[in-house]
Design a protein around this nucleic acid. Structure first.
Length: 152
DNA sequence: GCCAACGTTGGC
DNA sequence: GCCAACGTTGGC
């Protein structure tokens, strides 16, 4: 059992959008970073805990809880020429981009980036490291516990 | 809109 | 393999 933080721009897919989806499940399309892809492909398992983070928005922060709901499979958007996520170098035989399904569990209060930064025991979170832009980062069990408590 | 930081591309 | 140029991320 591992824990993750996954960023989504709420203008693209918010926690409300995820909860409104069939089964509250979203295929996590559009990841085009190898490190983030590798986390999904190689390390995620069904049932892993996910912090649903809103990025590139007026109030960045953790907005909900979710879980990994599938193992990795090819991201279909890489094959769609009209998609912003199209990748001309990807083929059905050799897909380049993988994703997992994410099931939203419930909204939380907005645990802001500023509050995360202010917490001394969270200073090692990958999210908070200087220059960190990864859209998917592992969260330690200790960080997960602290954040769950902050969300109570 | 600005800009720091990072990742990718492609010429050499 | 190097590295400059470029594109993207994402907070502010």
């Amino acid at each position: 059992m591992q824990y993750w933080l996954m960023k989504s721009e709420p203008s693209e897919a918010s926690i409300d959008d995820a909860l409104a989806a069939p089964g509250a499940v979203l295929p996590w399309i559009g990841v085009r970073n190898y490190q983030a892809r590798n986390f999904m492909r190689d390390q995620m398992a069904v049932g892993d805990g996910v912090l649903f983070y809103h990025s590139s928005c007026p109030q960045p922060g953790i907005a909900g809880l979710a879980e990994v709901a599938s193992s990795a499979y090819p991201d279909a958007s890489q094959f769609e020429p009209q998609s912003p996520y199209y990748d001309s170098k990807a083929t059905q035989e050799q897909p380049r981009w993988m994703l997992v399904d994410v099931r939203a569990l419930h909204k939380t209060r907005l645990l802001s980036l500023a509050e995360l930064r202010a917490h001394p025991d969270l200073s090692q979170m990958l999210l908070l490291q200087r220059g960190s832009r990864l859209s998917i980062t592992p969260v330690s069990a200790a960080e997960w516990r602290i954040i769950r408590a902050l969300l109570q």
